[in-house]
Simulated assay, not measured.
Amino acid sequence: MKAIVVDKTGGPEALQFKDSPKPKAEAGQILVKNHAIGVNYIDTYHRKGIYPMPTPFIPGAEGAGEVVEVGPDVTDFKVGDRVAYTGSKSYAEFTPVPVLSAGKIPDNVSYSDASALLLQGLTAWTMVRDGYPVKKGDYVLVHAAAGGVGLLLCQMANLLGATVIGTVSNDEKAKLAKQNGAHHIINYSHEDTVARVQELTNGQGCHAVLDGVGASTFETSLKSVRRLGTLISFGNASGVVPPISIAILGEKSIKLMRPRLYAYIATKEEKDKWWGELFQLLADKKLNIQIYKTYKLEDAKTAHTDIESRKTVGKLLLEL
Rank of each mutant, 00 (worst) to 15 (best):
L15D: 08
L15P: 11
K18R: 14
K18N: 04
K18I: 11
K18P: 01
K18D: 00
S20I: 00
P21E: 11
P21K: 10
K22R: 15
K22Q: 15
K22V: 14
E26L: 14
A27I: 05
G28E: 07
Q29L: 08
I30G: 03
L31V: 04
L31P: 09
V32S: 07
K33D: 07
N34T: 11
H35F: 14
H35M: 03
H35N: 11
A36P: 04
I37Y: 01
I37S: 03
G38Q: 02
V39S: 06
V39L: 05
N40S: 12
N40I: 12
Y41K: 10
I42D: 02
I42K: 08
I42E: 01
D43H: 09
T44V: 15
H46V: 00
R47W: 12
I50R: 09
Y51W: 12
Y51M: 07
T55Q: 07
P56Y: 08
P56R: 07
P56F: 04
I58S: 04
I58V: 15
E62N: 11
E62D: 15
E62F: 08
E62G: 08
G63Q: 06
G63I: 09
G63V: 09
A64I: 05
A64C: 12
G65S: 06
G65V: 04
E66T: 15
E66D: 13
V67H: 01
V68L: 02
E69T: 06
E69L: 02
E69C: 03
E69N: 07
E69W: 02
V70T: 10
V70Q: 01
P72H: 08
P72A: 12
D73H: 04
T75L: 03
T75Y: 00
D76Q: 14
F77E: 02
F77T: 07
V79E: 12
V79D: 07
D81L: 01
R82D: 02
V83K: 02
Y85M: 04
Y85F: 13
T86S: 08
S88N: 14
S88M: 12
S90V: 06
Y91T: 00
A92T: 05
A92S: 09
F94R: 02
P96N: 10
V97I: 04
V97M: 05
V99C: 10
L100E: 08
S101P: 00
A102E: 02
A102H: 05
G103C: 13
G103K: 10
K104A: 10
I105F: 10
D107H: 11
D107N: 15
N108Y: 13
S110R: 07
S110I: 13
Y111M: 10
S112Q: 15
S112V: 11
D113T: 13
A116M: 06
A116S: 14
L117C: 09
L118N: 08
L118V: 14
T123G: 13
A124Y: 07
A124P: 13
T126F: 00
